[in-house]
């Protein structure tokens, strides 16, 4: 607590932040992922865990509030936790389902562009990914709007296999099975 006396020159304080919810651990109880935070703290900083989650502390916390306020706080907390876990599940399900498509599209006779779509479902920022593609392959790479709504990345050149490798290597959030390569032949050769 800051109640300690304050000399003129006090070194900067190092504050620990929770690895799960990024708040200082003492505020984890308000974050909605309390359970996970507690486990994280227990495995990473057992001494602080003992300080924060001991029986006496919990009781003292509870005693500070009136019974009614306690109930409301509890209800609120459980609601928040439920919301957080629901969101997580939904995201996980979405991720498992969504596909990343790598398409080779013919520009003119022997020129191709590679179109990558579906990356946004994995929480990646298209603009940054596009920049990375451009840097990696030394080609033009941009985010283009799709007529039906949504956006995709267009990389100049026939790079489908390289893009596939690059994505699996640099973005581990995208499972390899969810990436599909499609060769798009607009006109029949002839």
């Amino acid at each position: 607590m800051a109640e300690s006396s304050v000399p003129t020159q006090q070194p900067a304080k190092q504050v620990l932040y929770c690895g799960i919810c990024s708040l200082p651990p003492e505020y984890c109880e308000f974050g909605g992922t309390t359970k996970k935070c507690e486990e994280w703290l227990l495995s990473n900083h057992p001494d602080i865990h003992r300080q924060l989650y001991s029986q006496e502390v919990l009781e003292a916390n509870m005693a500070a509030l009136s019974v009614e306020a306690q109930k409301r706080a509890e209800k609120d907390a459980s609601k928040k936790a439920a919301k957080a876990s629901a969101l997580e599940q939904r995201q996980a399900a979405e991720r498992a389902e969504s596909q990343v498509l790598i398409k080779r599209v013919e520009r003119s006779k022997r020129k191709y562009v590679t179109v990558v779509s579906g990356l946004e479902a994995f929480g990646l920022e298209l603009k940054k990914v596009a920049k990375d593609f451009g840097k990696k392959f030394a080609t033009g790479s941009s985010v283009t709007k799709v007529p039906g709504g949504g956006e995709e990345i267009t990389v100049q050149g026939d790079l489908s296999d390289d893009v596939f490798d690059f994505i699996t290597e640099t973005y581990p959030v995208v499972p390899e099975d969810n990436i599909d390569c499609i060769e798009d032949k607009k006109k029949k050769a002839g």
Binding site: Y27, F30, G31, N61, A64, L65, A69, A73, D76, A77
Partner: peptide, 8 residues
């Protein structure tokens, strides 16, 4: 203490 959760 009661106000923390609202602030957060």
């Amino acid at each position: 203490r009661g106000a923390i959760r609202f602030v957060l």
